[in-house]
Design a protein around this nucleic acid. Structure first.
Length: 865
RNA sequence: GCCGGAGUGGCGGAAUUGGUAGACGCAAGGGACUUAAAAUCCCUCGGAACUUAGUUCCGUGACGGUUCGAGUCCGUCCUUCGGCACCA
């Protein structure tokens, strides 16, 4: 074939995309003889177009997949669509398009965009979670979980987004706002379906220890979210009544400092103990508000079982009903919240923990009545805040003098022995509310029968398919409520009339197991055990850190549920996780027109009004701030290879990437140089038949030997940089160095030409995972059979890669004073000798005494005077 | 407040276990080619000083410490970005 003089990314890329598709190069099959590698990128929501975050995410994944494949692994690299969700339904309301049509059109466009990027996906395994073939398995899992009591329905206060008119899970509320539309979330009481994720709380927490291939911050966030705490539960009886208040505390060591008890407004006793319902309702109304602590004295007293002291009972807005027992003992001296409350309501504050260095200074910790907070024994010393640290117990009966860490355990044991309470473990993690009052999701497969109550749909009747003939009015309430055909059904148990559940599932259910679906092809059994056993777990998962809790926690939960159902036999779905940084860009603002797209600014001026623009902070690319680059434009202009290369070169994958148009030009220049080298040498290269035998290097010039050495050094560098933490940016920098040497190289002999050919071919192999099309094109242009991806990853030879001489750095008292070239493997004595013979060093040393000489082999000498 | 990152030239970023700070790229400046421009190629490029072929000093957020030697380890602090936040 003939090679064009000029690099034309468009024609090259389309040519090879077609070739790869026709040959089915990325189709994968199970092969027990080969070691597998499952490389997965988080699948996208089909919003319409891909953005630069996707480009980066998929470029990273593609390099890993192609690289592992060239290293001999049987690589699974699938892609699909997280296709259920609100935007489709909102589009239906606004534009009158059916969500299915809207979604599938978006998928069509985005798929073409991904193909244009030259990604090595096995499209035979593509999934769209909105297809009944997919979501029937959501329903199947639901039924299995119902059987195992892992799915249940209950009434509860839920997070309700008024704009999306649906419920949100705790994980989906961000600073009191909806994670999707950012509008205020209110509390509403509703009947909801839940998944009992708390059943696995301990296991999910313990499993964190096994996540050694995950970023530490993500593991920390998971642990934090599960939020385990150990403490005791014990009953405080209500004075003069039968009732008891069960409290939970992690600080049993402060029990003697409890000066009042608080119960949540929703606590069952609050109604019983408070006579004035109006006042109670006022506190209830303030529940969950963080600005100010509000309380109401019930008029009743509780008895502290440790010292039989009577302490007042309050209803307090800051006490959570959902955590612990909904009631607490308050120790204002040692808990900041209780302290603030005590201050406001003039309650006593009693010190029972003395900071260790203060212990024994006579502070008795006696009760102080006034809110002036004077602690007796230290005149003028008044508490301004609670002391929450560790210390020595005071004023705590027989536990006085004990260290608080010890006392926590001892008092816990004491309480159990006396039958006053028990040691318990609490988690912040709540059950996962999955009901959504929207149309575009998986129907929950149960029916309501007048006789039988809630009845699950039979397995054989799955999937429960979404009806198509529904109206999207946007008036709130699920559109499913209007579909008579859908609603009316028979009871699977008694055959009588029944009504279908109209709630659909949270879309996070869909993404909690999609990685298992990919293990089998479209026409195969969705949960084929052999396929799953072969491919799972995912060896490398790549996605944004925004899913650090939500999706990743749900997936870990689902994996355990499916394990317990008996379909798989491992615990963790993702062995290694890479959370890529955000793609950021500078924001531009016009004083008149507000945020500007990059193309709306020319020469620091707004193209509309000519006013001077302000350059703002570098922020995550977002449509609202208009600091975006359209991947379509980018690929039209530079091609996929350049776009991929730059997004990998500009920063290591886990760090944020600052987009710079000029940087893209640099990547483009580099590929042009590569092209130019092959073009310049095209005739020579095609003639050369085979590679040089390195054993006979006598006729190779020094110049060529250096190139050969550099080539092997580069193989080593690129390989180890990819291997070690996927540092593609330094790998590419290494490749650039090699290409710089290649452009300068002038072959003098046939042997030189053989070296050149070997070196160029190596460069192309090393480049191929990053910029696959150009590598493929130039590989072919050199007279090789396609595809380059059928080739093995090159191996370096240590001997060839080694420098003949090393540059020895000579330091005097730790400062670099000279450098000399020395051969390899000199003995320390010899090195010292040569160092001393350096004129420059002689000059510096003069006749001063040398105290010591440090030699770092192959690198450096430090003379200490 | 708690937990976790990060701070290195004009900029993005290198520096594998404590051993030459600034690889590679961008921008900038100078030169070659060209009628000219673009493209391409070559050179310079942390700061300061001096007796300027070179040499010395300073320099990795700040201040201390350990060490023959610290961007890297330890301590204290500052700034900044994420996450969690009345979870008892």
């Amino acid at each position: 074939m003939t090679l064009e003089e000029r690099y034309n990314p468009q024609s090259v890329e389309l040519k090879w995309q077609k070739y790869w598709a026709e040959k089915g190069l990325y189709r994968t099959d199970m092969d027990a003889a080969r070691e597998k590698f499952y490389c997965l990128e988080m699948f996208p929501y089909p919003s319409g177009k891909i953005h630069m975050g996707h480009v980066r995410n998929y470029a990273i994944g593609d390099v890993i997949a192609r690289w592992k494949s060239m290293r001999g692994y049987n690589v699974l690299h699938p892609m699909g669509w997280d296709a259920f969700g609100l935007p489709a339904e909102n589009a239906a309301i606004k534009q009158g398009v059916h969500p299915a049509q809207w979604t599938y059109e978006n998928i069509g466009y985005m798929k073409q965009q991904l193909q244009r990027m030259g990604l090595s996906y096995d499209w035979d395994r593509e999934v769209a979670t909105c297809s009944p073939e997919y979501y029937r398995w959501n329903q199947w899992f639901f039924l299995k979980m119902l059987e195992r009591n892992l799915a249940y329905k209950r009434s509860s206060f839920v997070n309700w987004c008024q704009s999306c008119t649906t419920v949100l899970a705790n994980e989906q509320v961000i600073n009191g706002k909806c994670w999707r539309c950012d509008s205020e979330v209110i509390q509403k009481e509703l009947e909801q379906w839940f998944f009992r994720i708390t059943h696995y709380a301990e296991e999910l927490l313990e499993g964190c220890e096994k996540l050694t291939g995950w970023p530490e911050n993500v593991v920390a966030m998971q642990k934090n979210w599960i939020g385990k705490s150990e403490g005791v539960e014990m009953d405080f009886s209500v004075d003069g009544q039968e009732e008891k208040i069960r409290i939970f505390t992690t600080r049993p060591d402060t029990l003697w400092g409890a000066t009042f008890v608080c119960i949540a407004p929703g606590h069952f006793l609050s109604e019983k103990l408070v006579a004035d319902k109006e006042k109670l309702n006022a506190v209830k109304a303030k529940y969950g508000e963080m600005e100010e602590k509000e309380g109401l004295f019930t008029g009743h007293y509780a008895v502290n079982p440790m010292n039989n002291e009577k302490i007042p009972i309050y209803v307090a807005n800051f006490v959570l009903m959902e955590y612990g027992t909904g009631a607490i003992m308050s120790v204002p001296a040692h808990d900041q919240r209780d302290f603030e409350f005590a201050k406001k309501y003039n309650l006593p504050i009693r010190v029972v923990i003395a900071p260790e260095n203060d212990a024994g200074n006579g502070r008795s910790g006696e009760t102080v009545k006034s809110p002036g907070l004077r602690v007796s024994g230290s005149p003028g010393h008044s508490l301004t805040e609670a002391y929450e640290g560790e210390g020595i117990l005071v004023n705590s009966g027989k536990f006085n003098g004990m260290r608080s860490e010890v006392a926590k355990k001892e008092i816990g044991i004491f309480i159990e022995e006396k039958g006053l309470g028990r040691r318990v473990i609490n988690y912040k993690l709540r059950d996962w509310g999955i009901s959504r009052q929207r149309y575009w999701g998986t129907p929950i497969p149960v029916v309501y029968c007048r006789k039988c109550g809630i009845v699950p749909v039979d397995d054989k009747d799955l999937p429960v398919v979404l009806p198509e003939d529904v109206k999207f009015t946007g008036k709130g309430g699920s559109p499913l409520l209007d579909s008579e055909d859908f609603l009316r059904t028979g009871c699977p148990r008694c055959g009588g009339e029944a009504r279908r559940e109209t709630d659909t599932m949270d879309t996070f259910v869909d993404s909690s197991w999609y990685f298992l679906r990919y293990c089998s092809k479209k026409d195969e059994d969705a949960l084929d055990k052999d396929n799953i056993a072969y491919w799972m777990p995912v060896d490398q998962y790549i996605g944004g850190v925004e899913h650090a809790v939500l999706h990743l926690l749900y997936s870990r939960f689902f994996t355990r549920v499916i394990r317990d159902i008996g379909i798989l036999d491992f615990d963790e779905p993702f062995t290694n996780l890479l959370t890529q940084g955000m793609v950021c860009m500078e924001t531009l603002k016009c004083p008149e027109h507000g945020w500007l797209f990059p193309e709306e600014a020319k020469d620091e001026k707004c193209v509309q009004c000519g006013r001077e623009i302000a350059r703002g902070r570098v922020e995550k690319m977002s449509k609202s701030k208009k600091n975006v680059v359209d991947p379509d434009h980018l690929i039209d202009r530079y091609g996929a290879d350049t776009s991929r290369l730059f997004s990998l070169f500009a920063a290591p994958p886990e760090k944020d990437l600052e987009w710079a148009d000029k940087g893209v030009e640099g990547a483009y220049r580099f590929l042009n140089r590569m092209w130019g080298i092959v073009y310049k040498n095209r005739d020579v290269l095609r003639v050369m038949r085979d590679r040089l035998e390195y054993t006979d290097s006598s006729r190779v010039t020094d110049h060529a030997l250096r190139l050969l050495r550099k080539t092997h050094q580069t193989i080593k560098r690129v390989s180890t940089d990819i291997e070690r933490e996927y540092h593609f940016n330094t790998a590419i920098a290494g490749l650039m160095e090699l290409v710089n040497e290649l452009s300068a190289f002038q072959p003098q002999s046939d042997e030189d030409r053989a070296v050149l050919k070997h070196s160029i071919e190596t460069a192309l192999l090393l480049l191929s995972p990053f910029s696959p099309h150009i590598a493929e094109e130039l590989w072919e242009a050199m007279g090789n059979e396609p595809s380059i991806f059928g080739q093995k990853w090159p191996q370096w030879d240590e001997e060839t890669a080694r420098e003949e001489e090393i540059e020895l750095v000579i330091q005097v008292n730790g400062k670099v004073r000279s450098k000399v070239m020395v051969p390899h493997g000199l003995a320390d004595e010899e090195i010292k000798q040569r160092t001393m013979n350096e004129p420059r060093i002689k000059e510096i040393l003069g006749d001063k005494t040398i105290r010591k000489i440090f030699v770092v082999k192959g690198k450096l000498v430090n003379i200490v005077m």
